[in-house]
Design a protein around this nucleic acid. Sequence first.
DNA 1: ATGACGGTGTGGCACCGA
Length: 260
Amino acid sequence: MQIATWNVNSLTVRLPQVLAWLQANPVDALCLQELKLTDDKFPHAELAAAGYQAAAFGQKTYNGVAILSRHPLQDVVRNMPGFEDEQARVLAATVQAPSGPLRLINTYFVNGQAPGTDKFAYKLRWLAALHDYVAAELSAHPHLALLGDFNVAPEDRDSFDPEGLRGTIHHTPEERAHFAALLGLGMRDAFRMFEQPDKSFSWWDYRMLGFQKNRGLRIDHILVSPALQGAVQECHIDRAPRKNPQPSDHTPVVATLALG
DNA sequence: ATGACGGTGTGGCACCGA
């Protein structure tokens, strides 16, 4: 059982790359963020031809999340119940795998722009709501994974310049406290369950040769519930798609679970 | 300090991302 997350920065532009990646990496489920398209434009047919059904939650221009799966998807929920939000950032679904049900919460965390801005305040409200939502989902679904673009570099080692960027967006104590609060629910960062190369990142700025210089951040994550942790066999960042022509600025994170 | 790159929109640049 393999699950993955990828911020594609426009599914319209990146669909050929997603299809090529799925052919080379036939994961059981793939969570996508930043679709930047409405649901009527979602490419269900092309993905079905590749063996994937999809639950999509999009909007025009910004945001948008989808869960692709080789197995049936059930109990699809859009956004966080009780948290009013005009932005399409959260999509939950249960993957009915042969090994049993696996609840996935696909999230596109708020960027937050900079501390002190309205967007940052929105980010903190959103993070607080997510904590409560994950807590509720955990009690209902022991086998739970929280995947997505977290827009938080959890630790200094998750940033190419932790000193220079200290206190700036993705690096603030407030954001990191919210990430830690998710771990406080018993969730674990699958990537950090294993030894990993130094300077492992999942996003690089398009500008100033960010990728070539490995000036990146690790902000895309897969968190797994206590009942899943014993099943996690591997987790890695796949840098290959970042080398494509016309790449997304993010690249996929993949985890392998031994379920059943 | 600013912008650098890339995507979207109804555009001729502005806004947003991270």
